[in-house]
Design a protein around this nucleic acid. Structure first.
Lengths: 335, 335
DNA sequence: TTGTAGGCGTTATCAG
DNA sequence: CTGATAACGCCTACAA
């Protein structure tokens, strides 16, 4: 049982035991119909007896197909990302691919390093969160000659494929939504992530263009949490002099914090302060008051991204390079 | 730019351009000190010029080390698991390993299939959630001769390493906690996962042993959600005739739902119904009333698991086979 | 239906 | 310090 030195069983070993050559074992595994029923049985017995597990590394090297897809997300503990990763990997698994996953922590340099590291595994395809990548990364990705999906954002010029929605578009629609409700002023609570920043900007721009009233902002460092949302509302009130009106938050987490802080300050929601989140997470509908938010179909995003990749991989008709999944404003009691 | 047919740059290409052999390129990458400064420079230039990305697959096959660690969790969208995966993978990445992650969906058969699939990638180590694995899986794992950490549970007889806590122990402590507070009766709300079931059982056993009063249960099918928690409290009240007392929930999600349903029924918390969750998630302290729950240090779990694996891998002093991280009951206003 | 030969791109081992 | 040469375990021809 000397673990480290343990000789792994190979196809050659299995073949020897079954009285056939290594290639026949390979065939029995990849396409049983090409092997006679009798030898197939013997091979299966030998596999069973030896506990043979095929070596995918050797297979990948020889065939130039790794059956591996890699993905990069900002954070795996954030349900927004983990949910589309789940539907993405599920569909890929059904097609025989496995998922190598890493976290960039929203850091562009880290992303670049990880892209190189992932590419060294010779994946058959790759998923990236977002559309901004370093020039070197783009070059490497293009050079790899594999399908690449950029998700959770929108662009006309993807590296290869793009599945997502427009953050600026969503934020503008939220601004219009707020304007239509007749509010003369509004504020934002925004996490320190580039896409959230773009939403904040698009929201403020539209709102200010229509009303001429500046939109105060509370930024959030670190992870978007309830505590951060509470602190943000405090900052808006105490530092920005924000008294009343709607607050567009960059995530439901932050919005939840804003709701809690508002309640603890005796503010009425939506009477004094109206709250809009982003993401439509599970809990949004169950908060009190229920949270108005922006919904993006993340399950679908993962599926569509996987389908696009698989279409590339299967060599069938080429998939749409760009898919805009859109978004939906879900109006609930908090607004 | 014919993607699929694109010839990837190899060490041989780089060597040719730098005027050295392929082996020298390999050395320049793995141990620069073994190469003269001058050729090192030339090699670096050639790498830069060609955009060479090493083929980790070939490297793994030749060296019999994949620098890959794989992990199996029940669900990646559940923060309970994703949080220790994050700290686990972070530490491993610092040590030069990458993480291949799959979801079992709490399904033992799926787990067995995935273990085989993962093993075929020849990982250098593997993380499993839980301590119950099929006989075949154990055999394969043992045969692989690699470090294996089982986490999020406790056993005296791990396959190799174990880092976690005792679910039965935690549930008993919760029962004692409830008994000490003098409650004559209690109920449970439990998701359909084996560990949650074990907690429910240990809790009920202890409580019934002390009081002689049976502990009514509401089970939950599907994912633990706020909606499921609400439905569970409804079931407890309407089907089990549960009127008042503490409710031990198998997750904070479910507890959150119970809190919301209790409020909507006009029940006072903790006056009529006291609520105890499990997990101490972010939002637990910010609910109203704040949630009493059981905390397990998941970040630490991932770190300790990674350290144990790395200790095995580095061939230094052998790590403790079993690490009990314990747990902590966090008393807040809901109890 | 089965087998032989060659090669995938590295690393390990020896020589020089 | 550098270079041959032989694996690593499998897959893709091609042949029998």
């Amino acid at each position: 049982m000397d673990g480290q030195t343990a000789k792994r069983v190979t196809m050659t070993d299995v073949g020897r035991m079954a009285g056939v050559s290594q290639v026949t074992v390979s065939r029995a595994l990849s396409d049983p119909s090409k092997v006679s029923p009798d030898t197939l049985r013997k091979i299966r017995e030998a596999i069973e007896a030896t506990g043979f597990v095929p070596n995918a590394i050797a297979g990948a090297l020889a065939s130039n197909r790794s059956r591996l897809v890699t993905a990069l997300v900002p954070s795996i503990t954030n349900i927004v990302y983990s949910s589309f990763i789940r539907s993405f990997s599920e569909r890929l698994r059904d097609a025989g691919y496995q998922l190598l996953l890493s976290e960039t922590g929203f850091d562009p340099e880290e992303e670049q390093a990880l892209i190189t590291a992932h590419l060294s595994r010779r994946p058959d395809a790759m998923l990236l969160t977002g559309i901004h990548h370093s020039a070197q990364s783009r070059r490497q990705l293009l050079g790899a000659g594999i399908p690449v999906v950029e998700v959770w954002d929108m662009t006309d010029t993807p590296i290869d494929l793009c599945v997502g929605f427009s953050h600026a578009g969503a934020a503008q629609r939220v601004a219009d939504f707020v304007l239509e409700a007749g509010y003369p002023q509004a504020a934002t609570v925004t996490a320190a992530d580039e896409r959230a920043g773009r939403r904040r900007q698009a929201f403020a721009k539209r709102f200010e263009a229509e009303t001429g009233v500046p939109v105060p902002e509370a930024g959030v460092d670190g992870a978007a949490s309830i505590a951060a949302g509470r602190a943000a509302l405090t900052a808006l009130i105490e530092r920005e002099g924000f008294a009343r009106g709607p607050i567009f938050c960059s995530s439901d987490q932050l919005a939840h914090g804003v709701l809690i802080e508002a309640r603890s300050r005796g503010l009425r929601v939506p009477g004094d302060v109206a709250v809009i989140g982003f993401g439509d997470q599970d809990f949004a509908r169950d908060l009190d008051p229920a949270l108005t938010t922006v919904r993006v179909d993340r399950d679908r995003l993962g599926q569509v991204a996987a389908d696009a990749v698989l279409a590339r991989l299967d060599g069938g008709p080429p998939p749409d390079p760009v898919t805009d999944l859109g978004f939906e404003i879900i109006r609930r009691a908090s607004f």
